[in-house]
Design a protein around this nucleic acid. Structure first.
Length: 722
DNA sequence: AGTCGGACTTAGCATTTATTCG
DNA sequence: CGAATAAATGCTAAGTCCGACT
């Protein structure tokens, strides 16, 4: 449906349909697009407020013009500012404006400009005509069918390139933010009457509140941790808080509680869900999609952006990682009264669910979150924030890699410095220098101190204790070996035997003198002291930058080393994965071997065997066909030889692919690649590698990852150097 | 210098969805 | 086509780091 007719200053007319307008303008502006509005080819902050102005992304504008112009005429393509040297200024590095300035323009001033294009700028003005007056006219000019069909695709391709725009000044995260608030967990549905809970062998009907908490436990019955003392103790304590006085006086011993019937019921439910018909499944899917469409997006500064976690965490039993002292505690249901909403003053403020109120509505554009609440287990704040594909996350990510690249420039100096500091007279300086050496060489985390008894006992570099390392003056033919054995983040074990320099070794001996196993190894050091020192060495330098730097530089160097130009694509990808793996090992990104690992490995092996047989068969056939051709010497048999040859080649290739896959999987058994890929490896390294060797980017990044790294995919060329 | 709340990144496992296989 | 398997996505815990305050 054509709803608007637009006339350019030079008389060219554009028709826009509904979807088109929605897509490019954002919701608010569309609603108010009245009889006369101004349009710009770049975002105008004031535009959002004044309701009479809106903007097109520039490229979209021209493409739209191409598709929609009734009397087609190639619009003047206004070039961006000169392309300096193809190098995109980094967010932090450079304070000079990026490609598209975003400064607030006075709308009137634009209006009074010299024409529809201002030389040297990319402004382009449109006048939206009174759509009623033009309706009759627009009817007889029909838009070609082909263009109509092409259009949705165009929209898909037209992604906002925020990385070509200027950033906001430090501290300001947005100018306009509108969203629909969070989606709450579905309310509790009491169990059907026939599902029983037994206490001490007797049926007992629970109050709704007590029953709800009981179902949380029942759902976990198969898990090992429901047998753990701490889990049971914590659960029982919190459960009793939800009980009525009568229940409380009856139910005094968790061991006398029988949840098995409830558990069976839930298992049956899960099974039933699996068995649902296609239509029912589709219905659920549609409903989820509707929810996503309504609540999964927000408008931030003229752009519709995807929200990461718009659903509030449902209530349940807390299960920390590792040996967590709070496991089994009740994670309570979050109500609107717990929720703080953050949005623009002039936005449509999301209404709380009927009969409820928000805890608070604030308008803080110094933060990126849309919704927050305080969680009851640790008392920490949880947030609803944007998806990694959003501008606000992407900019930060890009900046992180730029900081790491700055470290690259001065890392030698820093290394020399800490080696000097090993000899310092000051204990504090020595400890700092040894800790930094570990962080640099082993990619250890900083290691903040944690409150004892509140979380699992895990450590990082600065919080290492004497009991976590063993010193071996000599081990397996190597001198000065340090053996690390401790639980790190998520209670993942770090175990490593590392030869270190003599001076480090001697220092460690010194630090351990007269200490108990549970004493801090670096007793004069913490992360704040360390980071303060790092800040002096380089602006923006913190302990974690070393992890980013070492991960990315390792990938780049491993790719150089491992890629064989003569390899085919699968073999090159194996090389990529191996380079990725080297990083994952460095960062100690482990995973539990998948439960079905052995089985799936065997399946793959049998596939390989089958393929081998198939290859042998194909070769035999080729041989006989060749013999046949020699005798008959006719066209037909020659052709047969050719096709058999091709078959052999194809099977060989398939076999090789399978074998590569098997190697890859075996090597990956206990190593998780995704964490480093997503958080530590500068995506531009991967993009450049793909471009250099002609590997399709889809082989390296899946759809979500491509969205997250759109900036890198767009800007990195083959010659990118980290 | 140390403590603490707050904001944001990083992490692995669980669940869902897509693909392959029989 | 449905089951099995693999890949992708979702979930939320657990880190890092900063700045206000004492």
């Amino acid at each position: 449906i054509i709803i608007s007719l637009i006339r350019l200053d030079n008389g060219i007319e554009l028709k826009l349909n509904d979807a088109h307008v929605h897509f490019s303008f954002g919701l608010r502006v569309v609603e108010s697009a009245g009889s006369c509005s101004w349009f710009y080819s770049k975002p105008q902050r004031t535009a959002v407020k004044s309701e009479h102005c809106c903007w097109f992304p520039r490229d979209f504008f021209f493409e739209a013009a191409a598709s929609f112009l009734c009397c087609f005429c190639s619009p003047p393509r206004i070039k961006d500012e000169p392309d300096d040297d193809g190098f995109y200024a980094s967010p932090k590095e450079d304070s000079k404006p990026l490609k598209r300035p975003r400064e607030d323009d006075d709308v009137k001033a634009c209006f009074q400009g010299e024409g529809n294009t201002v030389p040297g700028s990319n402004r382009f003005f449109l006048i939206l005509q009174d759509s009623k007056a033009k309706k009759a006219k627009s009817k007889d000019k029909k838009v070609p069918e082909a263009d109509k069909r092409k259009k949705p695709k165009k929209e898909e391709e037209q992604k906002w390139k925020w990385w070509e725009e200027e950033r906001y000044p430090e501290g300001i995260k947005w100018k306009f933010l509108e969203h629909k608030g969070p989606v709450f967990a579905p309310p509790y549905e009491p169990l059907p009457e026939n599902v029983k809970f037994y206490y001490d062998g007797k049926v007992m009907k629970l109050s709704t509140k007590a029953e709800e908490v009981a179902t949380f436990f029942a759902k976990m019955l198969d898990h090992e941790y429901t047998t753990k003392e701490i889990f049971r103790k914590n659960f029982f304590k919190d459960w009793r808080k939800e009980m009525t006085p009568e229940e409380k006086s009856t139910i005094t011993n968790l061991s006398k509680c029988d949840f098995t019937h409830m558990s069976q019921y839930f298992k049956a439910q899960t099974e039933a869900r699996k068995q649902m018909s296609k239509e029912e499944k589709q219905k659920i899917k549609d409903e989820n999609e509707r929810l996503l469409k309504e609540y999964g997006y927000c408008v931030m500064d003229n752009h519709k952006e995807r929200i990461a976690n718009f659903k509030i965490e449902p209530p349940g039993l807390f299960r920390g990682r590792g040996n967590h002292p709070k496991m089994g505690m009740l994670k309570r249901r979050i109500m609107p009264e717990d929720i703080i909403i953050n949005c623009s003053k002039d936005s449509k403020i999301p209404p709380p669910p009927p009969g409820h109120k928000w805890k608070e509505v604030r308008h803080d554009n110094k933060v990126t979150w849309l919704v927050s609440w305080t969680e009851n287990i640790q008392g920490s704040i949880k947030y609803i924030m944007l998806n990694p594909s959003s501008r606000i996350k992407g900019e930060k990510d890009w900046q992180k890699y730029e900081t790491a690249r700055r470290l690259k420039k001065c890392v030698d100096k820093i290394r020399n410095q800490y080696r000097e500091d090993w000899k310092s007279k000051e204990m504090k300086v020595r400890q700092r220098a040894v800790a930094l050496y570990f962080i640099d060489k082993l990619a250890l985390r900083a290691g903040n101190e944690k409150e004892e008894g509140e979380t699992a006992d895990t450590v990082g570099c600065c919080s290492l204790r004497v009991e976590h390392i063993k010193l071996h003056p000599e081990l397996d033919g190597q001198e000065y070996v340090v053996e690390f054995d401790f639980l790190g983040k998520d209670s993942i074990r770090y175990y490593n035997k590392v030869p270190v320099e003599k001076r480090v070794f001697k220092n460690l001996q010194l630090f351990m003198e007269n200490k108990q196993p549970e004493d801090d190894l670096f007793d004069r050091l913490n992360t704040s002291i360390l980071n303060k020192h790092l800040q002096d060495l380089m602006e923006g330098l913190t302990a974690k930058v070393f992890r980013t730097y070492n991960a990315s530089i390792t990938l780049q160097q491993q790719l150089k080393e491992l890629t064989n130009p003569d390899d085919n694509i699968p073999a090159k990808i194996l090389s990529y994965n191996r380079a990725n793996r080297a990083v994952a090992i460095l960062c100690n990104h482990q995973r539990a071997p998948p439960k079905t690992f052995e089985k799936s490995m065997m399946n793959l092996q049998s596939k390989i065997d089958a393929k081998k047989e198939q290859l042998a068969d194909a070769r035999r056939e080729l041989k006989s066909a060749k013999a046949d051709a020699k005798v008959r010497r006719d066209e037909k048999s020659k052709k047969s030889v050719e096709s058999k040859k091709k078959a052999v080649q194809r099977i060989e290739e398939q076999l090789m692919k399978l074998e590569v896959q098997a190697t890859d999987r075996e090597e990956n058994k206990q190593i998780a690649l995704s964490t480093s890929k997503l958080n530590y490896l500068d995506p531009r390294i991967s993009v450049a590698w793909c471009k250099k060797w002609g590997i399709p980017i889809e082989k390296i990044y899946n759809k979500t990852q491509r969205e997250k790294f759109a900036w890198a995919i767009d800007m990195a060329e083959e010659d990118f150097e980290f």
